[in-house]
């Protein structure tokens, strides 16, 4: 635990002393490596209440790592979906984390036992998540980013 904490703390705070490659590096959606994912949104049934889920998405701090719209942060899921493909998969994922590996998490996502988050609440959150859509336009439709690429192309010394 302690080690784990220290590891994330260091990753967050340490002055980068490593000599970065000129082209930079890093990982995750925010760090430039990952591309915008395009897996179509699931069409499986949804039973929860999205409006109630919206409040829970905020109070339970899901946005902390997934962004307010599931598109940014350490673990963006819009366009990836993965464990979110069905309501049941989502529930299994949450509970599995809480009950199976609470002390040795494979990622930094908190565990949610049913005493902390009821099935109903989880389903509401799922319903809300399923309303998310990518807000990313096609690249050709973002002049700012195209201008940046063009400037880099011009810049030939």
């Amino acid at each position: 635990m302690k080690k784990y904490y220290v590891a994330i703390a260091l990753a967050a705070l340490a002055t980068p002393m490593v000599t970065l490659n000129a082209q930079g590096g890093g990982r995750g959606a925010g760090r430039g490596g990952a591309q915008v994912a395009n897996v179509p949104a699931p069409t499986s049934p949804v039973t929860g209440n999205a409006a109630a889920g919206k409040a829970l998405y905020s109070t339970y701090g899901c946005y902390a790592c997934h962004g307010y719209n599931g598109e940014t942060g350490a673990r963006a899921f819009v366009g990836r979906w993965g464990n979110l493909s069905t309501e049941q998969n989502f529930l299994t994922f949450l509970r599995g984390r809480a009950n199976v590996a609470p002390l040795a998490p494979s990622t930094s996502m908190p565990s949610f036992s049913d005493s902390a988050l009821s099935d109903k609440q989880a389903k509401d959150i799922y319903a809300y998540i399923r309303t998310f859509k990518s807000s990313a336009p096609e690249l050709k439709d973002i002049p700012t980013l195209n201008a940046i690429v063009e400037a880099a192309k011009q810049d030939k010394k």
Partner: peptide, 29 residues
């Protein structure tokens, strides 16, 4: 070679920076 590497890298980078582009709150990218 370095120029090419730069153009490749920036082309890949902008592809990821468009994530959440029109979202609110504003994306740090």
């Amino acid at each position: 070679a370095n120029h090419e590497a730069r153009v490749t890298a920036i082309t890949q980078a902008v592809e990821s920076k468009r994530a959440g582009w029109n979202g609110t709150p504003i994306s740090t990218a």
